[in-house]
Design a protein around this nucleic acid. Sequence first.
DNA 1: CTGAGCTACTGTATCGATTAAGAAAGGGGG
DNA 2: CCCCCTTTCTTAATCGATACAGTAGCTCAG
Lengths: 348, 348
Amino acid sequence: MRPTLQTVADAVGVSRSTVSNAYGRPDQLSPELRAKILEAARRLGYSGPNPTARSLRRGRAGAIGVLFTPTLSYAFTDPYAVEFLRGLAETAENHRTGLLLVPLGADDEGALTAVREASVDGFCVYCVPGWYRAMGAALARGLPMVNSEYQGDLYVGIDETAATRTVGEHLTGLGHRRFAVIGNYLGTDPATGPTTVPAPEDLPSFVSRERLRGLRDAFAAAGVPWSDVVTVNAATNTREDGAAAAAYALDRDPRPTALLAITDVLALGALAALDERGLRAGADVSVTGFDDVPAAAEAGLTTVRQPAYERGRIAGELLLDPPDDPAKRRVTLDTELMVRASTGPAPA
Amino acid sequence: MRPTLQTVADAVGVSRSTVSNAYGRPDQLSPELRAKILEAARRLGYSGPNPTARSLRRGRAGAIGVLFTPTLSYAFTDPYAVEFLRGLAETAENHRTGLLLVPLGADDEGALTAVREASVDGFCVYCVPGWYRAMGAALARGLPMVNSEYQGDLYVGIDETAATRTVGEHLTGLGHRRFAVIGNYLGTDPATGPTTVPAPEDLPSFVSRERLRGLRDAFAAAGVPWSDVVTVNAATNTREDGAAAAAYALDRDPRPTALLAITDVLALGALAALDERGLRAGADVSVTGFDDVPAAAEAGLTTVRQPAYERGRIAGELLLDPPDDPAKRRVTLDTELMVRASTGPAPA
DNA sequence: CTGAGCTACTGTATCGATTAAGAAAGGGGG
DNA sequence: CCCCCTTTCTTAATCGATACAGTAGCTCAG
């Protein structure tokens, strides 16, 4: 049997509490006794108080839970997510707090129990669609929770609509009028292909909804009705699906003069699709993304920069050291339109 | 006060055990009573059994601890580490197990307590120097542990020495005789700059030791004694320090004809340093890396491919579902020399 | 009519610690 | 010489659940 506090206490001939104090409150006992206890502990192979028992008694887990969909491993394929995690990890580390990556898995049911079984002091939700039942379960835990979408007490995010509006205005300003939008979580069909989005407001995904609203507003201001805009869904946020979605748009007649992707990863796929057809980005067809991941700059992609690292860092700060002032518990970060070579005047 | 099992039990008028069973063993009570209990729970705002208490009683934490140095956030800047994590996360998720990123922090003392306080069922150690006292603490916990360096019961790694030997042989085969090695954790001084490594065997860092041994062997086979090889330390595994370290080597007279970096990230920095000096990689100076991160292929860097994702995946498998056969608990993965444009014949 | 076997619960010990309150011993001031 | 305070350790309650050994009531074979 593994040794416990009691084992050590018996060996030394003191009470359990004294051994506990030897670890947690060195000032509560004489240095000699403490040394004796630690020595006995080592001899017995006791490696310190059981963390779980300590957590239970103390009422804090010492970790915050990170919620990602669709799968945990996906998080590591998305460069934006990785930057976010880096910021979060930095804050957590400064507060000597762990980060528990919660295994939501692909199915909603499993996610539900995963959220309920997570030993954490708070949740940081990243890109989990609001309709997941797991979100309700997380909320029900009654723990502090930062979500960039659901606007709870703690919040850090950007003005998604305003950000994409600048993208739309940039393109209408360049004379573009025939648009295709490549998105994610559009419609109910999770496949890659053309879909119909009657109105952005109806979309269940927060990010898609807000970003498409910005585009629609910009298009409308230039006299382009939303019904003229081609919308294509990408099943997953990968270059492959981005390329496939772009292909649908590019093969239409008349061909759109601008492809607006909802993320950089999709946009990079769109650039590949252009390449494949011998089309020049920024000349024949303009392409835009969102996020400004490192690869975007290299590819000369026009996109919206949002501060991923900063966002993660602040999310952590809000969870671990929330400001007293309620107003300061809701942070909106600035975004910036990065104009690069992938956009240019609409071809005549 | 937050509701507990007892709260719900009292409200419904049943025993605590029955409420517990309603959650954990639905077959132990009638569906009607179960429904009544769950209903009462919802009414009272009880969100299910406390995960920490459950962990304590059950004796398992439902998470594996991930140990990274120097800091947790660093892990997210290293593309190789991210791929490793992706593999690990995938396995963990399949086993419905969480991943606890342990906040080791920069100082050894803090790392020690972080390791002791982690509520986990096992450890996966990635790139933590063996001399860290935290490693001893992790070992002392007596939990399953996968480490690519310390060769314990569970192990997944590569033959580091053989891998770098192929790099060395590749370069000697191209006629190179003047080498500079850019490494990490060489010598005791953590600064970027030239160091002396009398013999690779003396290095405390496992990876550095093994990789340098391979190089030395290859050089020796071509008649180049280790003492003729320039070694430069990079303080951190970043492009910046890689470039700085390369600068020291390139400014020597006679200039080395080949720069061998111990990681791709350092090698990419070295390429930048070449660029800055108007030197052509593969013509004026050959450069090699290690890992084969995505950026290496783009940069045309000759390097050793090691399967990062696979390594993470297997590490998880070993922890969560260890094979009965002890021989199968030690996995050595294959590596492959990827020859690209950054290496070429030694200039005359 | 008895008792074996089943279902549906209850009672109690236990997981491994922390912590507040209490007690014994020693020291110093009045 | 007595009382109070400090230091050092102990006692006992508690954190929130799970698991196993009952037990009551019911059905049904012999």
